[in-house]
Design a protein around this nucleic acid. Structure first.
Length: 106
DNA sequence: GTGATGACGTCTT
DNA sequence: CAAGACGCCATCA
């Protein structure tokens, strides 16, 4: 099996994240059809092949913290990318979810 | 097939 | 207000 349906939806949801916006694992899980499985989302993304070019740096936990810092050279790099994309960072080092959290239309 | 793990989320203490 | 524990679903060993 290449990827499960859930995996495919998760990858698609992450790929749909517009620049300058971030989403929480819970939102992706909700989009994938498993609102109670944010863990699976993180797992799927962690196993996501780079061939998909998934912007995991746009995926953060509900606090706006950078959970996926493991996937990049370092948290600095991720924060830099997000800032360049237009994501607002608070002084506490978290993303301004109030403005930068992506709201899926459908 | 069973047990343990995991890039989270929410409740309770 | 902050920290700890439990629960959720899917995958790995």
């Amino acid at each position: 099996m290449a990827y499960s349906e859930l995996y495919r939806k998760i990858y698609e949801a992450v790929a749909r994240i517009p620049e300058g916006k971030v989403v929480t694992y819970g939102q992706i899980a909700w989009m994938a059809g498993r609102p109670r499985a944010p863990r699976v989302v993180g797992y799927a993304v962690s196993k996501a092949p780079r061939e998909l070019n998934l912007p995991c740096h746009r995926v953060v936990n509900r606090l706006g913290e950078m959970a996926p810092f493991h996937a990049f050279d370092g948290p600095e790099f991720q924060r830099f990318l997000l800032e360049e994309e237009g994501v607002i960072f608070l002084d506490n080092g978290c993303v301004d979810m109030k403005k930068s959290q992506w709201k899926p239309e459908s």
